[in-house]
Design a protein around this nucleic acid. Sequence first.
DNA 1: CGCGGGTTTGAACTTATTCAAGTAAAGTGG
DNA 2: CCACTTTACTTGAATAAGTTCAAACCCGCG
Lengths: 215, 215
Amino acid sequence: VVRNDAHPAMANGYTLPEGAALTSYARGSAVFYQGDHAEHWYVVRDGVLRTCRFRSDGQRQLTGFYFAGDIIGFEADRYLATAEAVTEARLECHGVHGVPIASEKLERALANANRYIVLLGHRTAAERVAAFLISLPRDGHHIALPMSRADIADYLGLTIHTISRTFSDLARRGILSAESRHRLRIDDPQQLARLSGEETEAPVNHQGREPCPNH
Amino acid sequence: VVRNDAHPAMANGYTLPEGAALTSYARGSAVFYQGDHAEHWYVVRDGVLRTCRFRSDGQRQLTGFYFAGDIIGFEADRYLATAEAVTEARLECHGVHGVPIASEKLERALANANRYIVLLGHRTAAERVAAFLISLPRDGHHIALPMSRADIADYLGLTIHTISRTFSDLARRGILSAESRHRLRIDDPQQLARLSGEETEAPVNHQGREPCPNH
DNA sequence: CGCGGGTTTGAACTTATTCAAGTAAAGTGG
DNA sequence: CCACTTTACTTGAATAAGTTCAAACCCGCG
């Protein structure tokens, strides 16, 4: 299962260090489990991953999707969620020892979590779906949706029915077209962005006040 | 505004280092703003804080409440959210330099974010409110709600009407009593926990598989 | 060709939001 | 300290939105 191929340029500018292990995972297989001792972290080389947590009533909550260049499992102590392959995927596996830019990775994960929290705070299904689509990697006007409707539903806190209806509705409104079940075309990116309530990245009144006078 | 009092034991076992600055904030005042360069981080000594982000349509999303012993603003580069005082509050202010256990703090923030994501994934208002109440500091059977209904609504992705109705409904069902607007009594903690869909902290089938064979 | 999983859609129902009053609590100024 | 004003909270009724239940559809695959 383990290979050590040569590697092309990565999505995030990340480059594979010499000798990093490359592992393949079949659709649906787990990379690690929530609560397990975190001994490795991974860089997605290709394919798509998801992380999920479970409620005592059996309900599943997806907490993230991960694409080429993304990092999963970079956690001290124990894994915060279970990671599974959405598609056939290859991952670089790294040991927890010899980690140079630890807090930088955690920082990015925290920033992602905060964006996701704002997404989930959106009230209507159309807003959530729009925000979700915008967060996905785009290939020109096209978006690949390798995950199932159930995955999207468990990610957005909606049902598969609502996901399906919302796609149909957005298509009817001329915002997107479904080229296939797992491939969309974005016809009106601006309206999609407006729907998503895109966050203001430079916000609010900053009156140059010194928050901590004695430093 | 700045004082440097002696300090009692903190909620989380955190102890105030000699000479850490102690600052007071009035209700509603900001500690720092989203996007500002993160030059300080803070430990809540007393009072309650909130962090929030804003959408381009003006919608506010609260991303957290912080109580005595909690840490806010521990972020590399720039603040991820604006922090404001919900009540009169006193904070210890620390410079970013000389931070010993950096990744540990980020780790905790990330774990909190993940729990919150699962909370927001809950579909019904009663579930969200129950999960919210359970996440709050308890004083015996009592819970203090210093924040407004609007704060709770913006935190849970609901309206103030739904928050209010849900409290009334939970009271009608004998799960809690409203002793005042800002103080609740939990009459049936087990039913509240069940409603919240408390997360399984020791989850899933862990078959002792080695995820990364060559380490 | 037919089976089966995943998806879409319709209809009835449930839940949350909106709109509109009301009520309680918290200032404010005499 | 009390009337007055303002703000926050609660509640009712109508509307809109999401879920549930049920059926049909589509597409890949044996």
